[in-house]
Design a protein around this nucleic acid. Structure first.
Lengths: 343, 343
DNA sequence: GTGAAAGCGCTAACAT
DNA sequence: ATGTTAGCGCTTTCAC
């Protein structure tokens, strides 16, 4: 049978109250001798505290509800979850997972289910960087937003997102520093934080380098996959003056640009430098030549979300009066697809 | 304040025991009128049952402990988790997640943590198909193994794994049916269920077609990534008589074979047919031409693991006397990288 | 420094 | 058909 605190107490010949004190490190309130005896008893019985009972009593579960939209279709989800889970676990917390499939009623029911299990707080994760509306079931609770933010003005909760702009800036600056002056941008027509910010950086980096913006050098494709990158390359190279480098909205699009280059006898990086964005696992590093890109810090975002949430619950960050928005750096990952023009 | 069953009972003017009965669908034991009143009261108070209290009382939590080795480094983890989570959730169950990082002491502690939260059972997941030893903390508990099995002989628990052999068979049969007679196999030196079974299928399929086995047509590389596939292709093509098709151990290796083909002016599938294994997201379908491959049914395996475990806990599969090993089919995914030789 | 007792919110036996 | 009571296993006053 399963051992309870009472069993431990009996074996150590103390009351269960004392046993509780002894096991939970309230060393000031109980004699060293008793602590010793109780711990020995607990070990010998392989005592595992019942956290349901403790949670019922203390109103804390050391459990985080992790709510995500579509886990399955993105290669980054695992990293966010891993970051969140590993930090949580390092503090003795666990993650209770729910995937809403972007279905609002599933989401509401999922939040209820989490709440009924009395999670101490919620991580609300999006699988791509965007602005979300906080679900009704989450208002008034401890929440941190992961890879998304709520409405800028009425923001009521903390969030962690990638610094798209600076990431794109560092990509552009690398190209510029290598001497490129004609740089294309292959992006998607979809409007979102990422497309907008990365394009903005593209333009500003050009301005910084005193290079006039040339609209024919940016191509907007339908989506952001390899075929879209291929299409974008086709558009850009329809110009009289071909670019010597292209900054791609995603690594997948860069993959399409690689194909275009190959078909047209362009050697990367000799004839064309290519830089991506995302550092998508098993793609960016698998391309030949390996793709220089900007890494989205999914693991770190997940980790920060956990840390922040736990601090919030423990009331340790309450000094920070207003909700914070944490922009995490997207580090440049230099590999082999960038070189000076005509090298 | 948080509403309890007592509040609901008071509002509906019944005892909390009756309210409990009414809400939990024991319609035979309580009058229709009371059910109506109680449900109305619950709704108006937005009553959320405390599952800690219920669990403490009933000794069930409708929660599964999901233990995995390295979640983060594999693109398939998300699909296994999603499969498990979505099935569980369809039954009102949730997943409590722990990632052990392949560290035995972390694993033991993680199992304890799950156990302390009184999960009803465990899914023990491996991120690649292999034979595992059941951790001590799990023996005697409800467990199903996901993408792994325990020792064949002394098997004590259920498991779900991909049918590597049949999957590889169907890949080979496709090649054969297209008329290929000289087929290479690019694989890894690493010994595991997958390498062994896929190689076995390669040999048997050849035998089935009465094609003598030619050892110079199989290349063993150090690992299973794109560069290894490239290396393998180099080895195989060092033969006097080049193969017209290559069966690759993984999609990543197939990617390396693509590079080799490209560098050597071989057009896929005209000059060389290539078939992979895994159907790795964002890779197999992104290659040009899109890679024909065999899909590892990660989502379905996860889903089955959940289903089986829940049935086990509910004692609904107890009729099946001995532990079962469920081999899931790996479907052939036909895309564009296979054609008749010399077409 | 230690024990007795109450109570977290629920369900299940047992009365009525 | 409904109410009373006990108890799941823990923590936390409050006595002593």
């Amino acid at each position: 049978m399963r051992k309870t605190l009472k069993d431990v107490a009996a074996l150590a010949d103390v009351s269960s109250a004392t046993a509780s004190l002894a096991l939970n490190g309230h060393s000031s309130r109980v004699s060293a001798d008793v602590i010793e005896r109780v711990q020995r008893a607990a070990k010998s019985l392989n005592y595992q505290p019942n956290l349901l009972a403790r949670g019922l009593r203390t109103q804390e579960t050391k459990t985080i509800g992790f709510i995500s939209d579509v886990v399955t279709t993105t290669p980054f989800a695992g990293q966010m979850i891993a970051g969140a889970q590993e930090h949580a676990w390092s503090k003795g917390w666990l993650l209770l997972l729910i995937d809403t499939n972007n279905n609002p009623s599933l989401e509401a029911a999922g939040i209820d289910a989490l709440h009924q299990r009395r999670v101490d707080g919620f991580i609300y994760a999006s699988m791509f960087h965007r602005i979300v509306k906080i679900p009704k079931g989450l208002v008034g609770r401890q929440v941190v937003l992961l890879d998304c933010t709520d409405e800028p003005k009425k923001s009521r909760v903390d969030s962690v997102i990638p610094n798209e702009y600076e990431g794109a800036m560092s990509a552009m600056r690398l190209l510029l520093s290598q001497g490129h002056r004609r740089i294309g941008h292959v992006t998607s027509r979809e409007v979102g934080v990422a497309t907008v910010e990365r394009l903005r950086a593209y333009k500003n980096a050009l301005a910084e380098a005193k290079i006039p913006f040339d609209a024919s050098l940016v191509a907007y494709s339908a989506s952001a996959d390899a075929p879209d990158g291929y299409d974008g390359a086709v558009q850009i190279f329809a110009n009289k003056k071909a670019p010597t480098a292209v900054f791609c909205y995603t690594d997948r699009m860069a993959m399409g640009v690689y194909e275009f280059a190959q078909e047209n006898g362009l050697s990367i990086p000799r004839d064309l430098s290519v830089i991506g964005f995302d550092d998508q696992p098993f793609l960016a590093n698998a391309l030949r030549p390996a793709l220089t890109t900007v890494r989205l810090p999914h693991y770190e975002m997940g980790s920060w979300a956990s840390e922040r949430l736990i601090n919030l619950v423990n009331d340790e960050d309450s000094d920070s009066t207003k909700p914070m928005r944490n922009y995490l750096q997207c580090p440049l990952v230099e590999r082999e697809s960038v070189a000076p023009p005509g090298s």
